[in-house]
């Protein structure tokens, strides 16, 4: 599969005075995927996004959107970008429709039907002619998304889009974004801290910490422990150490957690059912009480994230 690269960031550097905020950021996002941009607070996510949409100047490096460099063809590049960056506001004294018309005029959209289509898409048809100051937060978010989609951009960048949405709103937004990516082929880049959301929403993630890219991974490869032909079982017993001796596995296939009395067994997926049944019966036969047996499918993205970005040095002070 050779999806075209929509957003191409090469060796991006940015300093504020003597502080290096971004150090050689390299990132590529493709059409038809939801790309999560993750990092702790202060890592440089918002700075990177602002540079991509032209709100900040970079110091060096190149940003290309759909092959157009921001430097040489600003208007051409921006034509392909729709974005919501850092809680922007709409004109409160205008109606939702008037706000959208402002953007339509700036982007050369004359057809009122296009605007109406986008309004319908985000579910705002009934309230679109009311002044924005009467809108709830969720409605404003939807209108923000509508604004971003108005000109059929190939790249959609959303900074913390689920901020303030109720669970249903979050659920709806997730579906909209997935639809936009997988069905309409848009490259959706989302930056967020809410790992549970990211886990459900994203196809790939890029992790940034301290101004440097840690790496880009597919979500699958990060959270699935099913690499190759091994799987892990979590067995809760009353005496983990004794169970470890009884189970008949090597030391390296077994991990004991004495505090929680949990035994972690790594077994091959071939004949895994027979193998686990065998382990269970051995433990029971040895007189150890067996409470629960659970197949561990995944780690949480949160755990992975923290382990990848955790700083071991320093005494907890922010640098």
């Amino acid at each position: 599969m050779n999806d075209s690269v929509v957003l191409d960031i090469k060796d991006l550097c940015k300093n504020y005075g003597s502080r290096a905020i971004l150090r050689n950021i390299n990132m590529q996002c493709r059409a038809g995927e939801v790309f999560g941009f993750l990092g702790p607070n202060g890592a440089g996510k918002t700075t990177t996004i602002k540079i991509v949409v032209g709100l900040l100047d970079k110091d060096s490096g190149d940003v290309q959107v759909c092959g157009k460099s921001l430097k040489t063809d600003f208007e051409g590049a921006l034509r392909n970008i729709g974005a919501i960056v850092e809680n922007p506001e709409l004109y409160k004294f205008l109606s939702g429709m008037d706000n959208l018309k402002q953007f339509a005029r700036m982007r050369g959209i004359d057809d009122i039907n296009k605007i109406n289509d986008v309004v319908r898409f985000v579910g705002m048809t009934n309230r679109i002619n009311e002044k924005v100051k009467t809108y709830s937060l969720g409605m404003r978010q939807r209108l923000g998304v509508a604004q971003a989609l108005l000109h059929d951009p190939k790249l959609l960048i959303l900074d913390e889009p689920t901020n303030g949405l109720d669970p249903e709103g979050i659920h709806d937004l997730r579906n909209i974004l997935k639809n936009l990516a997988h069905e309409k082929g848009i490259c959706v880049v989302v930056s967020s801290h809410i790992m549970g959301e990211m886990e459900q929403l994203c196809d790939r993630v890029g992790i940034i910490t301290n101004g440097t890219m840690v790496g880009t991974y597919t979500v699958d490869e990060l959270i699935n422990k099913n690499t190759g032909s091994l799987c892990t079982y979590e067995i809760k017993v009353d005496d983990a150490a004794k169970a470890a001796q009884l189970c008949g596995l090597d030391d390296k296939c077994c991990t004991v957690d004495s505090e929680k009395n949990i035994l972690l067994c790594s077994i091959t997926t071939e004949n895994e059912q027979d193998s686990i049944a065998d382990i269970n019966s051995r433990i029971c036969a040895g007189g150890v009480k067996l409470y629960t047996v659970a197949r561990q499918d995944k780690r949480s993205l949160e755990d992975v994230f923290i382990s990848l970005t955790h700083k071991t040095e320093g005494d907890g002070q922010i640098e």
């Binding site: 949409v53 600003f74 051409g76 590049a77 921006l78 970008i81 922007p88 004109y91 953007f103």
Partner: peptide, 14 residues
């Protein structure tokens, strides 16, 4: 002051 500057500038207009 209204906070609308970001929406205004992220547009294909120099």
């Amino acid at each position: 002051s209204q906070g609308t500057i970001k929406f205004l500038l992220v547009n294909p207009v120099k």
